[in-house]
């Protein structure tokens, strides 16, 4: 792959190391911890106790859980070479628009394809556990995406570079310095391509990763739609959600 104008191999290597190091430092669970947790499942009784929660309670618990994860995404972004050189307006916009994308990509680390479970609040849960949310379509779409992302079998390095490239999307609305972000994304994308090539991964693997972007976008939109509907029905509950959640996913 040709290098972007004015970019050296050394710089691509530096970006690769910076993104991978940031990913490892800002992943909530290490791969060893996840291996140990992978078979810690919710019992049928525990699943039923989640299913019998009120929608308000379940929404609030999920909002708290996602908010905790968002903080790790902010720290991931801050450690990516060049991100903190962007103006604050663009840093905020990229995080608001892209943090759910990063969480969806990272989700394949905490998904067990053998029993279709996802790590939630310390144990691995089936889609049925989230019934009380009243968003079965959103939950099923998330689990289906986790399944298809896990089939690609991305390494930690590939997850790191792919999520950084998605976060640095220059096509987000209201960005100030689109050109600067485009250059940054291009370097991270070339770093991902070169990493895949070095590992013998084909262009096909990259194409599979990129093919998930439309699904990720529709899940992000569905999440906002569900949140807006929930806010209409339970405005007082949304007001108790963590302020960071409301800041990121608010208007």
């Amino acid at each position: 792959n040709p290098l972007p104008d004015g970019c050296s191999l050394l710089e691509i290597e530096h970006i690769t190391q910076s993104v991978v190091k940031s990913h490892i430092e800002t992943s909530q669970y290490s791969t060893d911890e996840l291996k140990r947790m992978m078979w810690t499942l919710y019992s049928p009784e525990e699943t039923r106790s989640y299913q019998t929660k009120s929608a308000e309670m379940m929404w609030q618990q999920c909002a708290i859980y996602i908010t905790n994860a968002i903080q790790y995404v902010v720290e991931f972004a801050k450690r990516i070479t060049g991100f903190m050189d962007l103006c604050q307006n663009d840093q905020i916009i990229l995080l608001k628009a892209g943090c759910m994308d990063v969480l969806l990509i990272r989700m394949c680390r905490v998904y067990n394809p053998i029993n279709n479970t996802l790590l939630f609040d310390g144990k691995f849960a089936t889609p049925q556990l989230f019934k009380a949310l009243g968003c079965d379509d959103l939950v099923n779409a998330v689990f289906d995406l986790a399944k298809s992302l896990s089939r690609i079998q991305m390494s930690e390095e590939e997850i790191a570079l792919f999520s950084a490239a998605v976060l640095l999307s220059p096509d987000r609305p209201w960005l100030t310095d689109v050109q600067k972000i485009h250059k940054l994304q291009e370097k991270v994308y070339v770093a991902l391509q070169r990493y895949l090539q070095k590992g013998g991964g084909s262009e096909e693997k990259l194409a599979k990763m990129v093919s998930k972007l439309p699904t990720m976008k529709s899940i992000c939109n569905l999440h906002i739609d569900k949140l807006e509907f929930f806010r209409l029905v339970h405005p007082e509950t949304v007001y108790t959600f963590p302020p960071l959640y409301r800041e990121v996913f608010g208007s």
């Binding site: 430092e25 801050k78 960071l244 800041e247």
Partner: peptide, 20 residues
């Protein structure tokens, strides 16, 4: 700034991996 107070704070804070 007011609208994204927490994001601004998080972006300014120097959090070490240990803090995370």
């Amino acid at each position: 700034k007011e609208k994204h107070k927490i994001l601004h704070q998080l972006l300014q804070s120097s959090t070490s991996p240990v803090d995370l």
